[in-house]
């Protein structure tokens, strides 16, 4: 089991390098946001694999927390790209 987990960790780390390449080089802002979202999702996979490798279940709450934070970041950045502000105060103007 340990050798399978180590192989999977190496594969996920290489795929995170691919995401990082797109986050650095990507021509538009949307490319970078997509790459950072995928990086957050891969980080959840890495934490799950490390909880097997270290043989503990205390890391599982962190996965849930990271999922919520990654979705919040992506949604708020999408709204910032669309409207120019994240929280709109005047609701009668549009």
């Amino acid at each position: 089991m340990t050798i399978v987990v180590i192989i999977a960790l190496i594969i996920v780390a290489v795929s995170m390098l691919g995401f990082l390449y797109r986050a650095i080089k990507g021509p538009s802002v949307a490319d970078r946001v997509v790459a950072l979202d995928a990086l957050g999702i891969s980080l959840m996979a890495i934490i799950a694999l490390f909880s097997i490798l270290l043989n503990t279940t205390h890391y599982i709450g962190i996965i849930m927390l990271l999922a919520i934070l990654s979705f919040l970041g992506t949604a708020s950045f999408a709204k910032f790209m669309d409207r120019g502000e994240i929280i709109e105060y005047d609701r009668h103007n549009h």
């Binding site: 996920v12 795929s15 691919g18 995928a38 996979a45």
Partner: peptide, 12 residues
């Protein structure tokens, strides 16, 4: 892990 690698390949 293979599926994640395929995703990175597509993003590249």
């Amino acid at each position: 892990a293979t599926m994640s690698f395929v995703s990175a390949l597509g993003l590249y």
